[in-house]
């Protein structure tokens, strides 16, 4: 039942099992693990989305409410967190910054989805065929209500590459910054 989340109502992206102690121990049973994994996956994505987190430092995140439920004193162990993020990588929902697997970009929408969103926004605001700097996209005054607002630049590059590959955009240098033109 959903009430295990505790007395105080938690945001809807909190998993059903947030208050269930075994949720923080990797389940040996494959069936149980598949359920556990999928709940953790959507929790990480939902959490990052709600907090506008673009990258996750696993060691730091370990002590946040994402992986540490103080009320029942349970913490998801680092190897298990890594396993979940590894699974997110498989579906393009995450990407390791380095092979040490300590920091990961979290794509709570896949790069393809973000690319389409960016394209849609540029189109609907009549900015096609004009050059926009990457900062205008993610920090500009007009895109504050967009999901990609504030996006990590490295992630943005990845998303824009999708548009370039689709033949919908071109990326080039504008002084120190990069610019993009969409058509």
């Amino acid at each position: 039942m959903s009430d295990v989340k505790g007395e105080t109502t938690l945001p809807p992206y909190y998993p059903e099992f947030y208050g269930f102690p075994p949720f923080y121990t990797r389940q040996p049973n494959t069936l149980s693990w598949s359920s556990q994994l999928s709940q953790w996956r959507s929790f990480i994505l939902g959490y990052c989305r709600a907090h506008k987190l673009w990258r996750l430092n696993l060691v730091d995140a370990m002590d946040t409410e994402l992986f540490f439920n103080k009320s029942i004193n349970r913490k998801l162990p680092l190897p298990t967190i890594r396993e979940v993020v590894d699974d997110l990588v498989k579906t393009s929902n995450a990407e390791w910054l380095s092979s040490e697997k300590s920091i990961a970009y979290i794509f709570w929408r896949t790069p393809e989805d973000f690319a389409s969103q960016i394209y849609g926004w540029i189109d609907s605001t009549g900015q096609k065929n004009t050059v926009l700097t990457l900062l205008e996209l993610t920090e500009g005054d007009h895109s504050t209500d967009q999901e990609f607002y504030g996006m990590d630049q490295a992630m943005l590059n990845k998303c824009l590459n999708v548009l370039v590959k689709r033949g919908q955009a071109q990326v080039f240098s504008v002084g120190d910054d990069k610019g993009i033109k969409v058509w």
Binding site: M1, D3, V4, F17, F20, P21, P22, F23, Y24, T25, Q27, P28, N29, L31, S32, Q36, N73, R74, K75
Partner: peptide, 24 residues
């Protein structure tokens, strides 16, 4: 019961404990 996925295990407090999702 664990093998049939009826129970989940918790290893973070003292003795290993077993919980049932159906009893939540």
């Amino acid at each position: 019961l664990m093998a049939e996925a009826f129970l989940w295990v918790d290893e973070q407090e003292g003795e290993t404990s077993y919980w049932a999702p159906c009893a939540l």
